[in-house]
Simulated scan of single mutants.
Amino acid sequence: MSSRSRFLPYATTPRRLLMQLFADASVLIWSVIWVMVGIAVHAAVATIAAVGRQVETGAYGIAENLDSAGNSVDNVPWIGDDLRKPLTAAGEAALDLAGAGHSLDDTASWLAWVLALAVASPPILAIAMPWLFLRIRFFRRKWTAIALASTPAGEQLLAMRALANRPLPKLASVSLDPVGAWRRDDVVTIRGLAALELRAAGIRPPWR
């Protein structure tokens, strides 16, 4: 086993590695799907923000035109002031409408992100968090098992765990008397039992 592989959170046995890669692909596909859903929600709500921007731009344009018209009619003798008042009032109403459009733009833009995250985050986290927990737990188990397999005492401990955890047919495939062989410090049997425990953890025995 290369020294680099011990730093990777992946199994070194084909079956466990294939299962881990399948899990990675499933989590990735699931996350991409929900990210796309979140993007769609963001785009849908963002159209409201676009309407707000259009209202703001148009209302400001109307207000400027009305203000310009008011300044023009103000010079008309005797009735200029009377003509300007309704234009000024309409311009102020247009400015209020522009302010409402700006508020709609800000609110909708903020709401688009909030809704997108609210829709996409829960299903992604519901899958990603258990996946991450299991992958971290596997990495810690792999690191510990590799460290134990590098020493004779560690091999004995792994063999003892195999005696306690592995099925009887598996133990019998290593030795007809696995407990007795372990007590006699039979190197071949101890390594065989340790190999059972390592393979159960998804780790290829380093001495094979």
Rank of each mutant, 00 (worst) to 15 (best):
I29G: 00
R15Q: 14
V32Y: 14
V41I: 14
L18S: 09
I29R: 09
A63V: 13
A44W: 09
S5E: 12
A59I: 05
V55F: 02
T47H: 06
T47R: 15
L8G: 06
A43G: 04
A46S: 12
W30V: 05
L28K: 05
Q20L: 01
V32R: 07
A43H: 12
A49T: 01
V27L: 07
T47Y: 13
A11L: 09
R16H: 15
G58K: 04
V55I: 08
W34E: 04
L21M: 02
L28E: 07
G58M: 04
I33H: 03
F7A: 04
I29K: 05
I48G: 04
Y10T: 03
A50V: 00
S5F: 03
A49S: 10
L21Q: 10
F22M: 13
R15L: 08
I29H: 02
A40K: 12
F7G: 02
E56Y: 06
A63T: 06
A40F: 07
W30Y: 10
P9H: 03
A23G: 08
D24K: 04
Y60W: 05
Y60R: 12
G58P: 02
Y60T: 13
A40N: 13
A49L: 04
M19Y: 07
S26R: 11
Y60M: 05
A44Q: 11
Q54R: 15
A49Q: 11
G61S: 06
A25H: 11
Q54K: 15
V51Y: 11
A43L: 08
A50F: 01
M19K: 12
Q54N: 15
R16I: 14
V55S: 00
A43N: 08
G61H: 14
I33G: 11
V32H: 13
W34R: 08
V45S: 06
L17A: 15
Y60L: 15
A43T: 11
H42P: 04
D24S: 04
A59K: 14
M36H: 06
L8A: 08
Y10E: 08
V35N: 02
I48R: 09
F22D: 05
